[in-house]
């Protein structure tokens, strides 16, 4: 199918982008990597009046280390974030997650910010920014810049704290501190597909004991979910059968997975439990992909 008609504007700067968004609001769609937007256009599932192409705003690209923070420009391509030495060294969770993000050609074009802004409930980067307690920077002509904690950003199915006149411009992600460990697990039907279940977790491990865990589940509900009860069940514990038993109960409280034709809620919950067990085991062994 061919996309419906729309007006197109390519902005050269953030100011221009915010001008257009201020004028057109919910009639405008922001075109970043286009890897999610373009399919919906080609399927005529969306018909924005205006497409605002932000790809040439150089200020929104780049990954930099800023004190104990990594700043990821919203327009940074997945492929660049994935291979960034800064990310590999300081944000191991994101490096662990990236091989699961789609395929090479999509990662070359898709953007970190686009993925977070869209907030697909089965995608990896929203879960990672939530697990890492990132701050998301939004900007608009009317309201100016504001920082939103990832934990306040995801509101529902493709619903976020971002207003129609706002642009996500950057994620500020705390770097891995000494003693902190990450683990990531995802189960999808085929390589690169959206997750049936996934967990991104980050926390502190000392002497085999986990504290301050932030386990985030994706491919479960309408948005990435921080497993609060699960974290509590793990707090101060090791990766033992006893912990796993407690986690299994806690996860049942944390998650109320959606059912669809790819997998029902019971399957997703079972998979989340298995992934959590494996991720916790990985955490006490230095973390990694499970």
């Amino acid at each position: 199918m061919k996309a419906p008609r729309f007006l197109y504007v390519r902005v050269a700067s953030l100011v221009e982008a915010l001008e257009v968004l201020a004028e057109y609001g919910d009639e405008a769609s922001v075109l970043a990597g286009g890897q999610s937007l373009m399919p919906t256009l080609n399927m005529r599932l969306s018909s924005p009046k205006v497409l605002v192409d932000i790809n040439r705003i150089d200020d929104l690209k780049g990954i930099s280390l800023d004190g104990n923070m990594v700043r990821v420009g919203a327009l940074s391509r997945h492929a660049d974030v994935m291979t960034s030495p800064i990310v590999v060294e300081h944000l191991p969770l994101i490096a662990q997650a990236y091989p699961f993000v789609a395929h090479a050609a999509v990662r070359n074009r898709g953007t970190f910010g686009g993925s977070v802004a869209l907030a697909d409930p089965a995608s990896e980067m929203p879960a990672c920014v939530l697990a890492l307690n990132a701050t998301l920077v939004l900007d608009s002509k009317a309201g100016g810049r504001r920082n939103v904690a990832a934990s306040d950003y995801f509101k529902g199915l493709y619903e976020t704290e971002r207003r129609d006149d706002e642009l996500l411009i950057e994620a500020r992600i705390p770097i891995k501190a000494a003693g902190e460990v990450s683990a990531f697990g995802e189960l999808s039907r085929r390589h690169g597909d959206f997750a049936l279940a996934g967990v991104a977790m980050h926390g502190t491990v000392a002497n085999g004991v986990i504290t301050g865990l932030r386990p985030v589940y994706f491919g479960s509900e309408d948005r990435p979910v921080l497993g609060v009860a699960t974290a509590a069940a793990v707090e101060g514990k090791g990766a033992t059968e006893e912990t796993f038993a407690a986690v299994n109960v806690a996860l049942g409280n944390d998650l109320d997975p959606l059912s669809n034709f790819h997998a029902d809620a019971a399957t997703r919950l079972q998979l989340a439990r298995v992934l959590t067990k494996r991720a916790l085991t990985s955490m006490v062994n230095g973390g990694g992909v499970v």
Partner: peptide
């Protein structure tokens, strides 16, 4: 995206 054909990796 939803009718899953076999791909190389699987």
């Amino acid at each position: 995206a939803d009718y899953l054909t076999p791909m190389a990796g699987d």
